[in-house]
Amino acid sequence: MTGNERPLEERIDEVVIGLADEAECARIERMAAEDITVARMLDQARKRFGELDDTARPEALPDDMWARISGRLETVEPEPAIVRDPDVVPFRRPDNAPRAMSWATIGSLAASVVLAIALAWTLFSQKDPAVIAVLINDAGEPVAVVEGSVDNTTLITLLGPTTVPEGRIMQVWTKPDEDGPPVSLGVLSRPTSTRLEVENLPAPSANQLYEITFEQAGGSPTGLPTGPIHGKGLAQQPL
């Protein structure tokens, strides 16, 4: 069901009535995440067919349903990533809200410092990463090294002591698609080097952006980076 040449309205209807396969659902969800017009078309279709959900005869919930649900909440962590799960439209902030950061300023980084650290790192790194990015702060100082593997395991090594603002955590982001939204790789609940795993992302490639921001506990509430930037950098393939 990959017929991208088909009308978008038809594809959305098929997602909503349950006829699209998982990959197609994920494609439409991704489009909705990036384009509010698509998000609204999807919402319209869901509301139209939602009248059919209203026809279901309410059934008595078992007495222990709340206990079953609340018991599960103890072990559930809020999920910061936005695009990897096709269950729902991954929502973004309204399009007119101010962007928390400029992705364009990355070109001004001190390239020679980055390259020197990346080369040295390769010599001592135990695993074979597909890419390495050295994240630089506003002052041009290297603050972290990110090693991305093809299976989307990401090793974050913090360089030097890191001061995390009170009540915040560090969240790691990347942009697998240069023109797409940033995707969360996970949060660092403590300012220590951490290995993160994420599913359903393409293998990292050269010039892919990585970034660490300070977000509220549990991760960014919008699914996109909102807090101040700790550091960012573009990935390079180790030689």
Binding site: A32, I36, A39, R40, L42, D43, R46, V76, E77, P78, E79, I82, D85, D87, V88, V89, P90, F91, R92, R93, P94, G218, G219, P221, T222, G223
Partner: peptide, 11 residues
């Protein structure tokens, strides 16, 4: 788990 992804402007 996903409540923080909900945005009333989008649906």
């Amino acid at each position: 788990r996903k409540a923080h992804q909900y945005d009333r402007n989008r649906g």
